[in-house]
């Protein structure tokens, strides 16, 4: 059974490959209201220093969530500016927070981490959303991202 998906329409590149704004939007729309018991993290990888934003580092940001993505308890979406959206099931919060702490440790020398590097939720590297409460906000964000990407593809 393959886990591959077709490349989303209107995608452009992220250093690791196609960016996935359109897929993020599609998945948000496909989610049944009853299945919104999820948390979303936006990892602001674009705010890191360039030397911390190479392919290897970006890949590390994805790998820390392996424990969750393997069992489809989390889904990752790469954005065009290298940011990463992580959607995970609420009951896996502990695992997600552990993964987040690993990333804070990994980039502890980056100025972004200077003020807070020990709180998984309160730091400048990530923004956390509750899918039930923030669904509309996330949907608007995904639509805006997709539209910007499509515009840049047309150019």
């Amino acid at each position: 059974m393959s886990d591959e998906r077709a490349a989303p329409v209107g995608s452009t590149t992220n250093p690791l490959g196609d960016s996935q704004e359109a897929r993020f939007l599609d998945d948000l729309k496909a989610l049944d209201p009853a299945a919104r018991n999820k948390t979303v993290i936006r990892l602001h990888l674009s705010r890191l220093l360039p030397e911390h934003r190479d392919k290897q580092n970006l890949r590390n940001a994805e790998t820390v969530f392996d424990e969750l993505t393997r069992t489809r308890s989390a889904w990752l979406y790469r954005l065009r500016n290298s940011d990463l959206m992580v959607v995970f099931e609420r009951h896996e919060t502990e695992v997600a927070e552990r993964a987040m702490l690993k990333l804070l440790k990994l980039w502890e020398r980056d100025p972004l981490m200077q003020k807070s590097k020990s709180d998984a939720r309160k730091n400048r590297l990530s923004s956390w959303f509750d899918m039930t409460q923030d669904y509309d906000k996330l949907l608007t964000f995904a639509m805006r991202q997709t539209a910007t990407t499509e515009k840049s593809v047309r150019k």
Binding site: M1, S2, D3, R5, A30, R72
Partner: peptide, 11 residues
């Protein structure tokens, strides 16, 4: 191999 039926049903 894992599938989430809310998103991967078609697959």
């Amino acid at each position: 191999t894992w599938y989430d039926l809310s998103l991967d049903a078609a697959m």
